[in-house]
Structures are given as C-alpha cells and as structure tokens.
Design a protein around this nucleic acid. Structure first.
Lengths: 340, 340
DNA sequence: TTGAAAGCGGTACCAT
DNA sequence: ATGGTACCGCTTTCAA
C-alpha cells in the first residue's frame, strides 16, 4: 500500500506537504512542489485512505442509511436516492436494514455507529422509540419517525399529495374513496386526514394490511360482497398493486370500473397493468433536505411537494411521458435500460 | 467520545487489558479484571470504534457492494441479500451504484476503495473491462462479469433454471418460445443457449430491450402482426413484466392465451397480474458463495441451483405457497408486512 | 496476568 | 513555503 511517506520520499518533500497538496490546503504550496507531489502520487499509484484521516479529523464521510427492508420498493427507491445524493457530496452510504420485525434495529444502528458514521438517515417503521439511540451523531428521520422521537423529520407534504390525487379523480368526474393501512400514524395518517377533510358525503374508508397479497384479498372480498369502490386514492403503492391484482382476478376493469391513484410513486408503478397513476414522492428533494439537516444541524425543512404522474389507472387517455419533467438529477433510469 | 483510555482509567487497568477483554483475546484476563472492565465499559457507555482498529489491523469489516442501479428490482434484491448475509458475519455493506450508463463506475469503486473495504462484490452490467481495477483487495463478481475479467465469478446454474422452466411449460403441454435481450453475454447467453439446445423444431426466439416499457411495445407489435407466442420462457423479470403489461393492453389473456415463466424471480413478480411463475435465483446461496470467495480467496464455487416457483402465469391452477420452502434465511419478508 | 509503548497513516500545528 | 512531529484510538508485542 502506498502511503504519504512513500509519496513524500518520491517527491523529495514531507508528508505535511503531500497532505497540503492532496487536500488543497490548509497551507499553500509552491507550483513546483505541488507538481512534484502530484507526479509522485500518480507514479506510485497513491490511493486516498479515509481511515487515518477520519481518525484524526473525526469525520469519516460515512452516512448511515437505515430503512426497514429494501425489498419494499418504496424503501429500495429511498435507498437508491440516498446513495445518489450522498455520493454527489463525496459521502459514502452505509446501508443498514433493520428487518421488518423490528428485531435487529438496535444492532443495525450500533453497527453503523461502530463505523463512526457522520450522521444517520433513518426511515422509521415501527412504533418503538429509538430512545436507546442516545448518540452524539446527528440523526434525521425521513418520511416517518417514531412518535416519541424529538429528532428532526424531513417530510413530504402528504396533504398536498392527497389533494392532488383527489382533485385529479374529480376531474374525471369521480369522487374517490380512500384505502389505507391498519393504523394512522405518521405520513399515512396525514394522507387519511387530508382526504377526510375534503371527502364528500358518503365517501368510504377501506383498510387492509400493507402487503399486496392481503390488499388483493380484501379487495376481492369487497367485490364479492358487491361493495367494490368506483374510485380510490390508495395510501401506498404496495396496496395499490395488490388492489390491481385483486381487480384483475375479480374481473374488475381498471380504469373503467375502478379508477385509482396511489401516493408513493415508486418506479415499479410505471409497469403495472395498467400503469398506475401516482403522486410521486419528492424523494430527491427530501434526501437533499435530510443531508442539509445533518450537515447544518438545520431545523425541519418545508415539506417537499410531490407531483402527479398521470398514467392509466385513473382513466386518463393520454398518460404523461415519464421522465418528461423528472424529479431530481438522475432521471433516465427506467427508459431503454439495457440490463446485462 | 468514550475511549479505551477512559475505560482503562475507570477500571484501574490498562488499555491493553481493555482490548483483551473486549475482544476476548488475544491474551487471557483474570475474571476479576474482566468483570471490572466490562462494568466500566458499560458504565461509561463505551461504543466500539472500527476505525483505529482497522488502521492497526488492516481490516475494516467493510465490504463494497457494487450494482448498476438498485431501481431494477433484481439488483435491489441482490443488494438486500448482500446486506443481510454480510451483516450476519459482522460485516458492513458499503453500497455503490455505478449508474446505468457506465459513467461513474470507476469513481464508485474508487470511493469504496478509499474506505478501505476488505473486498468488493460486483455485479457487472456493462461490457467494459474493469481493468483499471488494479486493486489489492479481493474482488468477486456475482451473476455476471465483464468478459475480459479474470476474477472469480459466482454464478447460478442458468442452464438448470432454463430447463426447469421449459420442462414445466411442457408439463402444461406447451412448447415454449424464448424471449431475451439484445445481446447474449453472460448469464442471459447461457439461458438462451440452454433453451436452444433443447428447443423443438420451429420454436422461436424473440428479442426486446430490457425495460418493461419496450418489452411491452414489442409484444404488442407481435400481437398486432398475429405473431404472438403461445408460451414463453423470458430471460428477465423486467421483460416478463413488460410482456404482461403488453398482453393486458392487447387483450391477450395470461395464462389462457399466453403462458410464461421468467428466470430471475425477484420479489415483485409475486404481485403482478397474474402473478408470475418464475425460477427464483438462489441469491442467498450466491451471496454466501461470494463472501466465501472473498474471505478464503476460494476458487469459483459450483453454480447454485434456482428453484421453480409455481404461480399463475404458467397456467398452474394451484400456485405454490410462497415462502413454503424459502431460499435463504430471511424468508418471511413479503407476507403480512405492515408498512409504517 | 498485566501494562508500557510502538505503531497504523493521515492531519495540521508550530517552528523554521 | 516547508517540514518535524504530536496526535487520533485501538492492537499487540514485549517486558515485567
């Protein structure tokens, strides 16, 4: 392994100067010397090493990203965005999955802390408090946090998202019912509240577990009982996908018999049958806000606004071109992708 | 921050002994002293710090995981499995996305190397050589590697997977055509070759780009031209999902008019309409093999065998219960999941 | 069994 | 502008 000492020797100078050159500071270096150092580093194939630097400065450039489990597409997407936004800032993502059961959450965070992450971006899942998390590293929650936590939450504007969906369905002449999960904490509660506040007389509220399989089953029961809704705003993609699946099996046509819009907007909603109209969460903006909170110890930012993406499930004849006005800097990830 | 020095002082001993106790070695420590150290560490809230340890030992416990982009479900799943399997061994995953275009691949790897990862698990995407990757850390490729690379590849048995799919469709009385991507490198080439080797007279080969949108478009064109296949083995989930979508839009019923099986088996295939029958890649086993290669500098392991998961798209009346015989240790992640 | 101390490789102060 | 060196916190040798 090539070290500063090697480079310094090769360049006939000291490790201090090597450091000044390779970090552009904090002391000035003459052009000649700088050139010699650069040449030596190049010649020897020097590779930067964050470890001793971190030991000395106390900053690793690592950020811990904790999500429940990225097999849920929404969290996979959140992770992807986190890695992208962190990478742009020279930060490295240490991804930890807390596991759906809640088991392993403390262990996950401990492991990340042992790597001396500079901060922690957490999307909370469970009720449980992260109280044990008495840590000196900054923590920011994205999308959802445990009720009792006093840390900053970086939210999106869930009421806005819900209104976009409701209004769009109304533009199709429909008055949507609402479909959500078993409880009403956090962002899903906000979505529900917002729908309730503007709901028409007689509008109905449906609930199912979050898994597509269970949402599908509940929907088929409703069809069987002649209770199927005509139009829905669905709180999560996973449920919307389940409903689509249930509708398909029950012979309910989408959007003719059931128009629906879901409120996460992870990438996979683009390729369901039919493609789901969604309000896409502004994940890039949320992640940028989260990083800003970590770095500047800022207070909670303004909720970021999601955007309606018209596809087929709402009844629109002419879907939006996906990616036409993409959110965030890495738009073109789903088009014409050549895999392998 | 609490250090060994603090713990040593509190326990009236030395940092050496603290190290012996907290690491269970390499020197023995008397029970009394050990107890004092443990109590002191607990009292002060000592947290392990991998950084100086790594500096000293040369082992960080970090493993770099490089995938093209986890917005493709197959890679998201691979990442998830990597994190799980690494975590079980006390290793931390540093996840890097190389980006679909190939831009940023070198930078991604450089960044991980600057964190002094103990090894690199890479799933290659592009043609390009990773030649610049002249690194002293062990590298292992999973699923696919650049043709010119001389590193170890951890494969699955793609021929076996294809045969499972073909034979299953034959058990439905169908002789499957094959659908794959634009080129035939790596695992997809093996899948194609295996199908070709056993294909009946007149069996057809279809190609489309990998994105669901494009696969869907190609399928609809086939339907329009009266060329739609009766049954298909599809090389990737993304294409199968696109074909499902195209079939839906074109009024082609699955499985009545089109029976298909796809060969990746990422989780989202469970909730398509109808659910996709797949040969699920043995990702856990592959990941375990990959870690073994990194740790033992082992040679290429036997290809791991995928498993047929019967769902609806092949025409089976009674789908397998998912998770009944799950692959790997973290099975129950998609059932009854309660999100938020 | 215990402990003093020499590193690991950058960083940056302080002196030159 | 340059360079000697103390230091970050843990590991481990070597001596006691």
């Amino acid at each position: 392994m090539v070290t500063y000492a090697d480079v310094a020797r090769e360049a006939h100078t000291s490790t201090a100067v090597v450091s000044y050159v390779l970090n552009n500071g904090p002391r000035p270096v003459s052009e000649k010397t700088r050139a010699r150092v650069l040449a030596a580093a190049e010649a020897l194939g020097y590779r930067p090493n964050r470890l001793p630097a971190a030991l000395r400065t106390g900053k690793t450039g690592f950020v811990g990203v904790v999500v429940p489990d990225s097999s849920i597409p929404f969290f996979a997407e959140l992770t992807r965005v986190a890695i992208a936004e962190l990478g742009q800032r020279g930060l490295l993502a240490l991804v930890g999955h807390a596991g759906l059961s809640g088991v392993g959450e403390a262990e996950t965070i401990d492991a990340l802390l042992s790597a001396r992450v500079d901060g922690l971006v957490i999307t909370a899942f469970w009720r449980e408090d992260h109280a044990g998390l008495t840590t000196d590293v900054p923590v920011v929650y994205v999308h959802h946090k445990p009720p009792s936590s006093s840390e900053t939450l970086v939210p999106s504007d869930n009421a806005h998202a819900t209104r976009l969906a409701v209004e769009h369905l109304r533009s199709h002449g429909l008055e949507p019912d609402f479909w959500t999960g078993p409880d009403d904490e956090g962002p899903l509660g906000e979505r529900l509240d917002s729908w309730r506040a503007g709901a028409a007389e007689g509008a109905r509220l449906f609930r199912s577990p979050f898994s597509p399989a269970e949402a599908s089953a509940v929907f088929r029961e409703l069809v069987g009982a002649g209770q199927a809704p005509r139009s829905l705003v669905v709180a999560t993609d996973q449920q919307a996908i389940g409903i689509l699946s249930g509708a398909y099996e029950a012979g309910v046509r989408v959007p003719e018999d059931l128009a629906l819009i879901s409120l996460d907007g992870s990438p996979e909603t683009e390729f369901t049958s039919p493609p789901l109209t969604v309000v896409r969460q502004p994940l890039h903006e949320m992640m940028r806000n989260a990083i800003a909170v970590l770095q500047d110890d800022g207070r909670a930012p303004e909720p970021a606004l999601g955007r309606l993406v018209r596809r087929r499930s709402c009844g629109c004849a002419h879907p939006d071109q996906d990616g036409a006005a993409p959110e965030g800097p890495d738009a073109a990830h789903s088009q014409g992708a050549t895999r392998l």
